[in-house]
Simulated assay, not measured.
Amino acid sequence: MQCEASFAPAPPIEVRPVTSQRDLQRFITLPRHLYAGLPGYVAPFDLEQRTLLDPKKASVYRHAEIQYFLAWQGNRPVGRIAAILDHRAVEHWQERIGQFGALDALPQPEIVAALLQTAEEWLKARQVTRIRGPVTLSGNGESGTMVEGQLSAPMIAMPWHPPELDGFIQRCGYETVANLLSYRLELTPETRERFKVPEGLKLGAGKLKDITTRSLSKKEIVTQGETLRRLYNDAWAHKFNFVPMQDYEMAAMIKDIKPLLRPEHYVQIDQNGEPVAMAMVLPNLYDITGDLGGTPTPLGWTRFAWRLAFHRFKSARVILLGVTSKLRGTLLGALLPSLAITELMRRGQSLPYKWVELGWILETDTAMRNLAESLVPHPHKRHRLYEKTLSPSSEA
């Protein structure tokens, strides 16, 4: 007698908006359930993700319309996406471009297609003509789909995705508009030697006598944060996908990262007392949370607090590097990024970092790539942004 196997068809995919606190919790924690056990994936803290995504905590909600969606197969959530209409972005770009973000799904093309189609329809109903992404939840936050580097060490504020996701997005009619590169710089005695300031280029002396530097002061961090925001907005205004950072966004960021910061983490370069360049590094939160899971036990929280108090980090990320537009195209303007990095690394010799990540850097930003690749020949991670033109909504 021959056995006959029967297989029930998979439940259809249904995409529904997030409307309850219970679904919001599912949305925030979903990636660590989807990606558990995949090579290279390390779950972030749920608390960190809630700060990023909870409408009551995420400052981008003050100027953006955002709708979260979950994809379901039966009673099981299998994917998520955010549809984003950022009014500050529309104003700055002078074009009605919407965005998608927080795109995570089981590696199945039909789930990704259903999520993207839902986000597209939501945006088309708001007269959006093009969709770009992913960002979480703005270009000033986590950006891009990871397409290379899944097995690299995780880094703060850098999203992780399975390798298949890139192809699934492109199958839905999305074209690549930017690649975002990250470089891993090992801080060996040999590399640190390269950060010595060349003779005659010492800040505050000789040809650079009108150039001075400032460090981070926790007593003045609010004022320094506003200076940083203005300088960042000026320095990055010409970059692709840039959206001006609002004062309340900077205040929220400073509040979130203040427990991680030390004076050595920030370099501000002034010319005759006026800020002209900056560089900022953040310790890699994954170094002290990576083995604790998304929801630590009481013992896990104790370990986290001890590691944070004693700065038990092994790596860090240069998250900001920019020069005022007033010096763009000048010799000093070309020199300042290298000097800022050099000063940052010089100060960082007292910190325990074994390597730093430079990134992300736009693949088309030749000047920054040349600076990074003078230290590290090749990027170790690549994230990707996509765009798609939307046909008019039938509801419009």
Score class of each variant (00 low, 15 high):
I254E: 12
R194W: 14
G294A: 08
P379L: 12
T342I: 03
P11G: 02
A153E: 13
A71Y: 15
E199P: 00
H238I: 00
V18I: 10
S338K: 14
G173F: 11
L308E: 09
R214F: 07
Y248S: 10
A367Q: 09
L371C: 06
E175C: 09
I169N: 01
D210L: 11
V197N: 01
L327V: 01
T389L: 14
A58G: 06
Q150R: 09
Q117C: 13
F240T: 02
S6K: 04
P259T: 07
R194I: 06
A8N: 03
G293T: 05
A153D: 11
M278A: 09
A372W: 00
K239G: 00
Q150I: 00
I257R: 14
Q150Y: 00
R194F: 08
Q49T: 11
R88F: 04
E199K: 10
Q99E: 00
T51S: 06
G206T: 05
L70S: 03
V267D: 06
E110G: 08
W72K: 14
V323E: 07
W360H: 00
N179L: 08
L336P: 14
T213R: 11
I131T: 10
L336T: 07
I131S: 11
A113H: 07
I288Q: 09
W122V: 03
A279K: 07
D23K: 06
I66L: 14
G149D: 00
K202L: 11
Q268A: 08
S394L: 07
F242Q: 13
Y248Q: 05
R317A: 02
S182W: 10
D256M: 02
I211P: 13
E186I: 05
S374M: 06
V356P: 01
A279Y: 10
W93M: 13
G300N: 11
F100E: 10
S182D: 01
E4C: 04
G141F: 04
Y386E: 13
E120A: 03
A178F: 02
L390C: 01
T364M: 01
P392G: 09
F45D: 12
E186P: 00
F100M: 13
Y61C: 02
R262T: 14
E14Y: 03
Q2K: 11
Y353D: 05
W355Q: 12
G348E: 04
A71V: 11
P39K: 11
P9M: 12
P162L: 08
Q73K: 15
Y183K: 04
L34N: 12
S6A: 03
G74T: 02
R32M: 09
D54T: 01
A102Q: 05
R171C: 08
L335K: 07
L390A: 05
W301C: 11
S6H: 04
L320R: 05
S143E: 15
P337L: 03
L24W: 03
P298T: 10
R96K: 15
Q25C: 09
G37T: 02
V128D: 10
G204Q: 07
I13C: 15
L321V: 13
